[in-house]
């Protein structure tokens, strides 16, 4: 039984990683209607940026910040330079998905061309997990969970509690209408991409931190888990993404106790289950097709 408690604790860490990633992913979708499959590549670029900053003595917090900012700027640029033009040109969402794929391919492979397929690692001192009730966390994991919680609260506070947030939500809800009502929708979109990009970068650096090493292909599988979490929670719903991340993250770790090799499959099983019961995701609304 002890092991299940422990697994739950580990699941919280995984969930924290997933939540940061999934909220960023879902935010991009909510505001721009873009399923950004290049998200994973941005994550990896942020990992490398943080790596470079660490080698220049930035320290852990500095590296997290650099990773976040890299993700932020990169996401913003991708949206401004590529996605937005395609969205304007034609409303076809499928085309946009293919566009994000193309961007993902180019970015990931350019990076691989530059850094090679060697392994990299943040040179930080090793830490042993301390016991916290039945759970066990390392300091880094505590930081990751802490950063995730702060980021989530901050995003919620921004969206719910500020004028900027309501303008962003209005843009997400109905861009045309918001525009008619005087909301500068383009600016809102830019801000949303900056914020979601920051979360993306944070998720990347946190991931690199927990797995101990990374290559340009790190995060391929992780992106899919992020998407699964976002879909389970209800795409376009930040709170849903957090919930989805918790459910997927924790259940993946718990399932690893009796059946390690099925760990990955759990996320999928959950996804199917949720889709059958609540096609719009746990918190999703109006995602159901009409007719």
């Amino acid at each position: 039984m002890q092991i299940y408690y422990q697994a739950f604790g580990f699941g919280i860490v995984t969930a924290a990683l997933l939540a940061v990633g999934a909220v960023g992913f879902t935010l991009q979708f909510a505001v721009s209607n873009v399923f950004n499959l290049a998200y994973g590549s941005v994550m990896v670029v942020a990992m490398y940026a943080a790596y470079v900053s660490l080698n220049h003595g930035a320290g852990l917090w500095g590296a997290l910040a650099v990773g976040g900012i890299t993700g932020s700027v990169l996401s913003y640029l991708i949206n401004r330079l590529v996605y937005r033009h395609f969205v304007r040109k034609q409303a076809n969402r499928f085309t946009i998905v293919l566009v994000t794929l193309a961007v993902a391919l180019m970015m990931a492979n350019l990076l691989e061309g530059i850094v090679g397929d060697n392994f990299f690692s943040y040179q930080l001192p090793t830490q042993i997990a301390y016991a916290f009730g039945p759970f066990r966390f390392t300091n880094y994991e505590t930081i990751i969970v802490g950063v995730a919680v702060v980021a989530m609260v901050a995003v919620q506070a921004l969206l719910r509690g500020t004028k900027l947030g309501s303008a962003m939500r209005a843009t997400a809800e109905n861009s045309d209408l918001a525009g008619n009502c005087g909301v500068p929708t383009d600016r809102m979109e830019d801000i949303a991409w900056l914020i979601s990009g920051f979360l993306c970068g944070l998720a990347g650096v946190s991931l690199a931190l927990t797995i101990g090493q990374f290559t340009p292909t790190t995060g391929n599988v992780f992106l899919v888990t992020i998407i699964a979490a976002a879909v389970v929670g209800g795409v376009g719903r930040p709170v849903g993404a957090i919930l989805g991340a918790l459910i997927v993250g924790v259940s993946e770790e718990i399932v690893a106790v009796p059946a390690s090799e099925y760990q990955v499959v759990v996320g999928f099983a959950l996804l199917i289950l949720v889709l059958l019961l609540r096609p719009q995701g746990i918190l999703g609304t109006a995602q159901v097709r009409s007719g």
Binding site: N33, F35, L37, R93, F94, V97, V221, V224, I227, A228, V231, V235, E261, Y262, Q263, V264, V265, G267, F268, L271, I272, L275, L276, P279, Q287, V288, R289
Partner: peptide, 30 residues
């Protein structure tokens, strides 16, 4: 499962996730 209830772009994501997990399933279950 997918086409009946979900919006189109949503469908795409679900099918992508399905494809990834399908390989994981076959690989995991020897």
């Amino acid at each position: 499962v997918v086409l009946r209830k979900l919006r189109r772009d949503y469908q795409a994501m679900v099918m992508l996730v399905t494809a990834v997990f399908a390989t994981a399933l076959i690989e995991g279950v020897t």
